[in-house]
Write a protein that binds this DNA or RNA. Structure first.
Lengths: 203, 203, 203, 203
DNA sequence: GATGAATGAGCTTTCATTCAT
DNA sequence: CATGAATGAAAGCTCATTCAT
């Protein structure tokens, strides 16, 4: 029994281990070669595992990507959605999006860079990612609601949506690329929020 | 003489024809599968030609892309650069970029979509494209000059650069995707310019 | 343990098996079509294996050739070189080369035929083969040394070198082609040695 | 009439011209890349002609080679055969072969190098070349006749044949490669003849 | 579950050859 | 005859995926 347990736990451990080894190698590969150029072979080459082992855990490189994004990316999506519901005015609305988005970018910079550099490919799997969330219909709907409720200024919702998305992605990208410190992030968030809020107000 | 001319032109015509057939198929393929996923075979499959024929015209899919971008894309890059040199203030500076950029997006919407959706891959060829130009060091340098000369407000040049780029791409993308009319473009340009100018002024 | 060993050895055996199947098919192909005309596909066609399998073992047809020549061919080159160092006179010098060379030709007749019929191509890989050794500068240098030491007659070294090479290859080729028996080889060696020794003495 | 004649002769001229242009390019290509590696494309690339033009004159690269060897190579074959018929003893027999063979090698060094470096491929077309002639059954038959008539020593005809062939080719190759002067050729012929005659006598 | 050899589809590219002009 | 674009077979090679061990 003892022996069996040990074996089992070892196995379990190993299983988890291999799974996360593959995910790590996947992130590394996606970052280096881009999603569409990365191959299953590339991923396992960044590993001590045999090629067959890959298929014990994932059916394709896309599944690795999804696993890599997994929780964190999904959570942030939900967070963004729920936070903006509570916004009472434009400033709050924008800030509610920008702040967590930048924190995500800072805390998961590798994932962020992958998504940001491969938006097109990421779109291909209808994965829920923060970018996706910012972009998807959901944001637009909330904007329309906000406009109707008088909380948000009456701006073309498509363009409204587009600027939030593009500015936050652009600034976050610049922020992450230039090595990010703690002061930086609040400066970046402030810059980004101010820029969008005042830009929107002026149009 | 007449006969000869006709013969020649028939051939030449066919040659030109095939060349543009391939380019068209290329654009179609790049649009559909993305640049890095598209293969030479994909391109010729969108064609009645034999595989060998491709290589009578191009050495690689990249050459097809370059041919597709060709003049128009190169010209716009130069235009953007020269126009911003003459700007006397922030409004002019931004407008000098946004207006021609949107016109390019409208007039070459397929190319624009390809470039916009494959920025990463396009970067790989050091082709001069409008995105590239907006993005490259050149823009940043001109911004720094403008700041020093007091023409532009004193904003972090990296962020300055980033917002111009991301907003114009984002709005132009939205604009193009939503079928573009003539009224739309001036509205889009106005929106975009106003947004950036006032956003920048506020930060 | 036994089981595991067996399993392993079965696999290993199969791997070794395939490797030598490919080498054999390679030899067959090189013999039939010549080295430069042989293709990887020709080699695998002489096999029940799939095309991809080839590349599990070799990177190119050249690697197959090298594997085929492998040890034996390299050893004989070294042997020829070391033996002639000990020669005390012309007879010994010639015999030291001819005898092992013919034994090699007899014992590896297929390889010998391939090399002999594709000297030009074999030269292209700087593989050490008996022909190469006989031909290379090394032989010429030793001849010059031998002449200077008075061990060998004072004959133009280029021609000296050339006759050793051409006669031994020519006779060995004839010898191998005409199905070789044990009496034959000593007769052939004797013929060859006598011929060269006396030819050289007379010029 | 005049006009027609002119046109015709011009055409004829051009025809001959293109033919020899292709042959020249062929020789150049065969020398540089070897027969089996040379392609029709290689040959026409060394030419200002269009690819289709090639097929107005030749069906394959092999036909170019045959045309290149043509007369000269065929003549020398016949000469060698006829000369050795008149030999009264070993010396004459050998000299009758060696002398014209070396002259051929000197006067057609490019062809000689091609044949000598591509013996295997040349054999593939059963073209009559000097090498072929020296090698073919014909020489062996004449040697047997010579032995029976007491003109030649009683040496194994296969080996007899082989040494004539290999030595003359080997020395001629060395001779041609080392830039050939007029003194050289008689020295080379003398060396070669002496070597073979005395070698043969001794076995 | 781990392994990695085997597989064959599919890609890029070159080539000999044809044929309308 | 000269031309050279079109053709499709065939080469080299890589890949995702399977499966016996």
């Amino acid at each position: 029994m003892n022996t069996k347990d040990k074996k089992l736990s070892k196995r379990e451990k190993n299983k988890e281990n291999n799974r996360s080894i593959i995910i790590k190698a996947g992130i590394h590969t996606f970052l280096k070669k881009g999603i569409s150029q990365a191959t299953v072979r590339d991923i396992i080459r960044n590993t001590d595992l045999a090629s067959g082992t890959f298929y014990n855990y994932f059916k394709s490189k896309e599944e690795v990507l999804i696993a890599a994004l997994d929780e964190s990316a999904i959570e942030i999506g939900q967070e963004l959605r729920s936070r903006r519901k509570n916004a009472k005015n434009l400033e709050e609305f924008i800030y509610s999006q920008i702040n967590p988005f930048f924190e995500f970018a800072r805390d998961h910079s590798e994932l962020f860079m992958i998504m940001s550099s491969n938006l097109n490919d990421v779109k291909a799997f209808s994965v829920e990612t923060p970018m996706m969330t910012l972009e998807l219909e959901s944001l637009k709907e909330d904007i329309i609601i906000g406009i109707n409720e008088g909380i948000l200024p009456d701006v073309d919702p498509d363009y409204f949506c587009s600027v939030i998305q593009s500015v936050s992605e652009g600034i976050a990208f610049t922020f992450v690329k230039g090595g990010m410190s703690d002061e930086d992030i609040s400066a970046a968030v402030k810059f980004c929020t101010n820029f969008i809020v005042n830009g929107i107000k002026a149009v």
